[in-house]
């Protein structure tokens, strides 16, 4: 894909094109999977560096996006394991402390982000891949190495959990 043996311009152009195509989605994935901004930036950069190294080593790729997201996912899992617990939290123990009777879109977004950090990482990952990155359930299933119904259930459960976290404020939220 990236014919960079001679360090020619086409290899650079190809990488630039792929970067421009996937950077936003990969960044959103890292940003929402990892709660730390610094970790997210590290994972994002490392993803593309490893991707470049992988394709430079040779081999035919049939699924570029799958490869990039697999690299990003593995990096995110490792960072999670390294810095925090990559474990499920009980949603019932958490509530969002800040509350205001008036919400705007940004506040709602902040509440959703906070909710994401509180739900099961498996659900969160499926939810992010589906809602933020727009992958189909088939693609999510392949990336997460689960069945399609399982991927679908995880996204559904994530939405249910987020709703549960936002339950006290939904009346105001939905009046926007």
């Amino acid at each position: 894909m990236i014919a960079d043996e001679d360090g020619n311009k086409r290899g650079e152009l190809a990488f630039t094109e792929l970067y421009q195509r996937y950077a936003r989605r990969i960044h959103a994935y890292c940003f929402r999977i990892l709660s730390s901004t610094e970790d997210a930036e590290d994972a994002f950069q490392e993803t593309f560096l490893r991707f470049h190294k992988t394709v430079k080593a040779g081999g035919v790729m049939t699924n570029v996006s799958g490869l990039i997201f697999t690299i990003a996912r593995n990096l995110c899992i490792n960072l999670k394991k390294k810095n925090t617990r990559w474990a499920s939290d009980d949603i019932d123990d958490h509530t969002i402390s800040s509350y205001d009777s008036t919400y705007d879109q940004k506040e709602l977004l902040n509440l959703v982000k906070t909710s994401l950090e509180l739900i099961n990482p498996d659900y969160r990952e499926a939810f992010v891949l589906r809602e933020y990155n727009g992958f189909s359930y088939d693609e999510i299933a392949r990336m997460l190495d689960v069945s399609v119904p399982t991927a679908k259930i995880r996204v559904f459960r994530a939405k249910e959990k987020i709703r549960k976290v936002l339950e006290p404020y939904l009346k105001d939220l939905l009046s926007i």
Partner: peptide, 8 residues
């Protein structure tokens, strides 16, 4: 609307 997540 979450453009922040995609902002590189």
């Amino acid at each position: 609307e979450d453009e922040e997540a995609g902002f590189v």
